[in-house]
Simulated scan of single mutants.
Amino acid sequence: MKTKSFMNSSDSHHLAVIVPFRKAFDELQAFLPHMDKYLRNKNIDHTIYIINQADNLRFNRASLINAAWHEIRKEGKADYLVMHDVDLLPLNKDLPYGYPRKDDVVVHVASPQYHPRYHYKKFIGGILLMKLKTYELVDGMSNRFWGWGQEDDELFVRLREKNIQILRPNNLTTTDQNTFLHLHDKIKRPRDGLKIGEQKIETRRRDRITGLHDVSYEVEERRILNIDKAQATVINVKLHCDIKGTPWCMIPTKGPSKGKAPRA
């Protein structure tokens, strides 16, 4: 089924581009002007939000996206969102970034068929687009994923339980080699794949407790960032950790820990 049949013209809609962020300044220098130009060329009204994690906890992509949703809803400007990795730049002009017609549909723009690295069928990471109300319908994402990976796999289960259809682009003229530009430098910026204590076991379960409704954070600062005439709203966020529920939100300074070391 063609993705475009589920998309509307974005003339009367506003897209919030949510970029979970921490210290990836080199990638941001390339991402912001590229993304702004790309969406303008598609005539998509948009605001780019850099959601910067400004605390000393381990990176939590899902909680940052949950926090961004609340801040964007307060503004009342955007009616749909795309969660977007800062190191993944769209190159094909036919990738779908328009407004979805239905509440029970999400669009996985970074389809495993075209993603330069991840090709498994349940992969919905990288770039995922939906209405704000659809994100609320599944209670957003779990807040239990500190460190790198798996939060999007848990979101996949939430979408499936609500019978929300995941659409992907097809019949593009490009391949997994030239649909996107992947900027991640695994040596300069290794992923935090450390699994501490019971983290590996606990984060393999469907989280039925945390989500959009209980994400805990405070906004430290909001400011406007300009790079090469492209503009973004930067929101510096301090996340709060439930130490009892997720003791793995901090890397221990002493003693052994179970699991894997940080990886790319």
Rank of each mutant, 00 (worst) to 15 (best):
M1W: 08
K2Y: 13
T3P: 09
S12F: 11
A16D: 12
A16P: 05
R22N: 02
R22M: 04
K23A: 08
A24M: 10
E27Q: 11
Q29Y: 12
Q29H: 10
F31V: 10
P33C: 01
H34S: 04
M35G: 07
K37N: 15
Y38D: 09
R40M: 06
I44M: 02
Y49A: 05
I51V: 10
Q53A: 04
A54F: 03
L57T: 01
F59Y: 04
S63R: 03
W69P: 12
R73V: 08
K77T: 06
D79C: 06
Y80L: 09
V82M: 13
M83D: 02
M83R: 07
M83S: 11
D87G: 01
L88P: 09
L88M: 07
L88W: 06
K93Y: 14
K93M: 10
K93W: 11
D94K: 12
D94I: 07
G98V: 12
G98R: 10
Y99N: 03
P100A: 05
D103V: 10
D103T: 15
D104A: 04
V105L: 11
H108Y: 06
H108R: 03
P116D: 05
P116Y: 04
P116I: 03
R117K: 15
Y118E: 05
H119L: 09
Y120S: 07
F123G: 01
M130H: 01
K131N: 11
L137Y: 05
V138K: 08
G140P: 10
M141F: 07
M141N: 05
M141S: 09
S142K: 09
N143H: 04
N143R: 02
F145I: 13
W146P: 00
G147E: 11
D152Q: 08
D152K: 15
E154R: 15
L155S: 05
R158M: 08
L159K: 05
L159D: 03
E161L: 04
E161I: 12
E161V: 10
N163Y: 04
N163A: 05
I166L: 02
N170A: 14
L172E: 02
L172M: 09
T173F: 07
T174M: 13
T174G: 03
D176F: 15
N178A: 03
N178I: 03
F180G: 00
F180V: 06
F180D: 01
L181A: 11
H182E: 02
D185M: 06
I187R: 13
I187S: 06
I187M: 11
R191V: 12
R191H: 15
L194M: 12
G197P: 06
E198T: 12
I201L: 13
R205V: 04
R206A: 10
D207W: 02
R208W: 11
H213W: 03
S216E: 12
Y217T: 00
E221I: 00
N226R: 12
N226W: 13
D228F: 05
D228Q: 13
A230P: 15
A230D: 11
V237C: 02
C241W: 00
G245V: 06
T246Y: 00
M250V: 15
G255N: 05
K260P: 10
R263F: 10
A264Y: 08
